[in-house]
Nucleic acid binder design. Sequence first.
DNA 1: TAGATTGTTAATCGATTAACAATC
DNA 2: TAGATTGTTAATCGATTAACAATC
Lengths: 220, 220
Amino acid sequence: MENILANVDLRHSLLERLIHYYYFIDERKKSGNTEVTVTSTQIADLINMNDTLVRKDLAAIGVRGHPRVGFKAEEVLSAIRDVLGFDEKLRAIVIGAGGLGTALATYHGFPDYGLDICGLFDNDPQKTGWMIGKHIVFSMNSLAHVVEQNEVRIAVLTVPAEYAQEVADQVVEAGVEGIWNFASTSLEVPEHVSVRHEHISVGLAELSYLLKRKKRDDTE
Amino acid sequence: MENILANVDLRHSLLERLIHYYYFIDERKKSGNTEVTVTSTQIADLINMNDTLVRKDLAAIGVRGHPRVGFKAEEVLSAIRDVLGFDEKLRAIVIGAGGLGTALATYHGFPDYGLDICGLFDNDPQKTGWMIGKHIVFSMNSLAHVVEQNEVRIAVLTVPAEYAQEVADQVVEAGVEGIWNFASTSLEVPEHVSVRHEHISVGLAELSYLLKRKKRDDTE
DNA sequence: TAGATTGTTAATCGATTAACAATC
DNA sequence: TAGATTGTTAATCGATTAACAATC
C-alpha cells in the first residue's frame, strides 16, 4: 500500500471553491472591519491555492474586481448567492426520521441556502404522527399527496441502505426531480431525475488520507 | 445569471470514485448472484463514466483484472478498503452535542469505515454529564485528558459557526491531528493539522445545479 | 480457436499556472 | 505619478479518452 496514493488529486470543484470563498469573505465581513474589499491573493493564501484561479473563478461568475483595490466583498457574496441559487426557494422532504434525518429536518441553516424542508417521513408506526421539531412525521402513504401539494422537488434520503432503492423508486414515482442520497449505497433512477450522493465516508477517507500523507511527509 | 454555470465541472475525485465503485460492487455482491466478477464497462455505465478511467483507477490502487472475465469483486473491495484505510482504527471525538453532533456520535456506520468515536463534548451544562447513545457528554474541560488517554487523532466539529475557530484552537492545543469541520465557516489551523470541510451547502448547491441544468436541457 | 476484456500507449482535452499588459 | 492589483493571453501540466495490442 505504502505509496499507492502518493499523489491523489484532492482538488476541489468550482462549486466547492465558490462556497469556500463565500465563507471566508462572509466571515471577514462580519469580523467588523469596515474593509469591505478582499484581494484574490488574500483568498488564495487562505485556501492554499493560486491567485489567478481565484480571479478566473470570480470572472466566471461575473464579478469584476477593481485594480489596486481588489474585489468588493458584497459584490462577490451576492454573485455567489446568485449562482448557487441560495436565494431561490427549493422545496424538499426528508425520508427517514432516524438520527441523521432528524438532524437534517430540524437544521436551522437550510433556509439560508434556499432549502425549505416541508415534510418528514418514516414508515415506523412508532414515529408517524409525532412531532419532531416543527414537523409531524408522516407515513409513506402521504408521500404522493405531500409532494404534489407543496410542489416538492427534492427528496433527502436518510433511510438504511437496504431500503434506499425502494424509497428512491417511491419518491420518483411521486414526482420528485432530485434525490439527495445520504444512504451508503448507489441508486438507479430514471434519466430525468438527478442524484447527489452524500457519502459520509468520502469526507472521512479524505481526512484519513490527509493524516497519512502528513505523517509521511514528516518522516521523510 | 442564465448560462453562467453552463458547463460547471462536476467531476469527482479519485477518492469519490473509489467509494462509488465500492458501494456498487458491494451491493452487487450482496444481491446474491454468485457472479463475483464485474467488468470495467459495467461499473462505468452505472456511474456514467468512461471504462478506461475505471481500469486506470483500479490499476492505480493495485488491482489487476482478468482478461475475458473482468475484475473479481472481492479483490476490488479489499483493495479499496486497504487504500482508504477502512480497516485501520482511527479514534475521534465529536464536539457539539446538537442535532448533527448527536447523529454523528450515534451513527452505527462509522466502525465500518474505521472511525471510532470515543467521546462527545459540549459546553452546555444542561447537556454535560448526560448520556447520548452510549456516550456521556463531557464538558470541554475534559478535552485534553480524553484526547490524551484515548490517543484521539480526529475532532469532529459540529458547533455553531461562531464558536468553530475557538473550538478548533482548543482541539489543536489538545493534540488532535485532524479536524472534520461541519460548521459553516473556514478555519485557520497550524501547518501540522489537517482540515476537511464538510459543508452541507456544497451538496445542496450541486443538486440544485443539476436540477437547473436538467430543466434547461429539457427546454432546449 | 475466436472473442471478450484487460492494460498500455499515444492523442486529446481542459484545467491550472505563469507572465505581463491594462487599469486606476 | 508609481505601484498595486486586476484581467487576459499563452504555456504548461495533468487528467481523460481513444485506439489497439496483449491476454486468457
